[in-house]
Design a protein around this nucleic acid. Structure first.
Length: 305
DNA sequence: CGGTTTTGACCAGCGC
DNA sequence: GCGCTGGTCAAAACCG
C-alpha cells in the first residue's frame, strides 16, 4: 500500500535548508518582514505529518519566520485518506470524507434532466424518479478523490482571497468544533476545484483552507504585474498587511497549482526547491514552461545557485 | 436581474 | 436497522 506522502519530504527539505526561513518554495522572507512590523497575526503553525499522525512541533523554531505552509493530505493508492483532520488534529475515521467530484455532479444533473424530460407524470412522481436516479447514480459511481492541499494560516478573515472566484454551496457544523465548515466551488465553468474553509477550534485564530482538485483556467483576479515576489513593504495598518498577505496567499496557491499540474501532483519524490534554486538550468527550463512562476518565485531566489 | 449566500433537507458511508 | 457525521443540493433570500 503505497503512500503518496509529501509532508515528510517537506520537513526534510526545510530541515536541510541552508537559508533559515525558506520554505520549500523559497518564498518566505517577505513574512519575516511582516513579523517585524509587529502586525503579524499570521505565523508558521507547524506541519502535520499525516503519514505518522504527529506534528513537527519544532518547525516554527527551525524556520523562525512567519508564513503559511502548504500541506498535503497524503492518499494511499486505494483511495483512502490517511488523515483528513487537519483542523482538529485528531485521527479521522476511515473514509470520513466522501467527496463527489463536480463531474459526478454534472453526470447526475444530466440524469436529472433526462428524467425530467421523460417524465409525463405528476410532479411528485417526477421528483421521486429523480431522487431514485440520483441515488442509483451515486451508488454505482465510484467516487474519485482529487488531491488535496491544505493551508493552515493565522488570519482574522475566514475566506481568504486566493485569486479565484468561489461560490459557497454549503456550510456545516463540525463535530467537536464551535466553528462551521464552509464549502466553496470554483465559479468557472468546467472547473471542478473545491475548497473547504474552517477555523481551528484549538486555535480560533487559525484558518484551515483545503483545496481539492486543480484549476483548469488561469486566475481571473490576479494582475500579473502585482506578482513580483518582492519582500513585503512595511505596513502601516492591518488593512495594508491583510492586503499583502492575501496577495501572498494567492501567490502561494498559484505556485502550488502550477507545480502540482506540472509535477503530476501529488508527487512523492522531492520538493521543487532544487529545481527553483539549486539548478539554474532546470529552473530556466521550468520557468520557460511555466510563466506564472516568474511572478511567484522571489527574484533573489532565482539568481542563487 | 443575475450572481452569490444562506440554510434546511437529503444522501452516502460508517460504526455499533 | 439505526444513529451519527460529512458532503451536497436547491429554494429562498440577499445584494450590487
Amino acid at each position: 500500500m503505497e503512500k503518496k506522502d509529501m509532508v515528510v519530504n517537506m520537513e526534510a527539505t526545510i530541515g536541510n535548508s541552508s537559508l533559515p526561513g525558506y520554505n520549500p518554495f523559497g518564498n518566505v522572507f517577505d513574512f519575516c518582514e511582516v513579523e517585524k512590523s509587529s502586525l503579524g497575526f499570521m505565523e508558521l503553525l507547524g506541519v502535520q505529518d499525516y503519514a505518522n499522525g504527529h506534528q513537527f512541533l519544532d518547525l516554527p523554531q527551525q524556520l523562525s519566520s512567519t508564513m503559511s505552509v502548504p500541506m498535503v493530505v497524503p492518499y494511499e493508492t486505494n483511495g483512502k485518506e490517511c488523515n483528513s483532520e487537519v483542523l482538529n488534529q485528531q485521527p479521522a475515521t476511515p473514509n470520513s470524507s466522501s467527496i463527489s467530484s463536480a463531474s459526478t455532479s454534472e453526470a447526475v444533473n444530466d440524469e436529472h434532466n433526462k428524467a425530467v424530460n421523460k417524465a409525463e407524470e405528476g410532479e411528485e412522481e417526477e421528483q421521486n424518479k429523480t431522487k431514485k436516479l440520483l441515488k442509483a447514480k451515486k451508488t454505482n459511481q465510484k467516487r474519485q478523490k482529487e488531491p488535496r492541499v491544505a493551508f493552515m494560516t493565522k488570519s482574522e478573515v475566514d475566506h481568504l482571497e486566493d485569486g479565484y472566484r468561489w461560490r459557497k454551496y454549503g456550510q456545516k457544523a463540525v463535530k467537536n468544533s464551535p466553528f462551521p465548515r464552509s464549502y466553496y466551488r470554483c465559479t468557472s465553468a468546467s472547473c471542478n476545484v473545491k475548497k473547504r474553509v474552517e477555523r481551528s477550534f484549538t486555535d480560533p485564530s487559525t484558518v484551515v483552507t483545503t483545496y481539492e482538485g486543480q484549476h483548469t483556467h488561469p486566475s481571473p483576479v490576479i494582475p500579473r504585474s502585482g506578482l513580483t515576489g518582492a519582500p513585503l513593504t512595511p505596513c502601516v495598518s492591518a488593512t495594508d498587511y491583510l492586503s499583502q498577505y492575501q496577495q501572498h496567499h494567492r501567490q502561494q496557491q498559484l505556485l502550488f497549482n502550477t507545480l502540482s499540474s506540472s509535477l503530476s501532483f501529488p508527487y512523492n519524490t522531492c520538493f521543487p526547491q532544487e529545481r527553483l534554486v539549486c539548478n539554474p538550468g532546470t529552473t530556466a527550463a521550468f520557468l520557460k514552461d511555466h510563466g506564472l512562476l516568474q511572478d511567484v518565485v522571489p527574484s533573489h531566489m532565482l539568481k542563487e545557485e
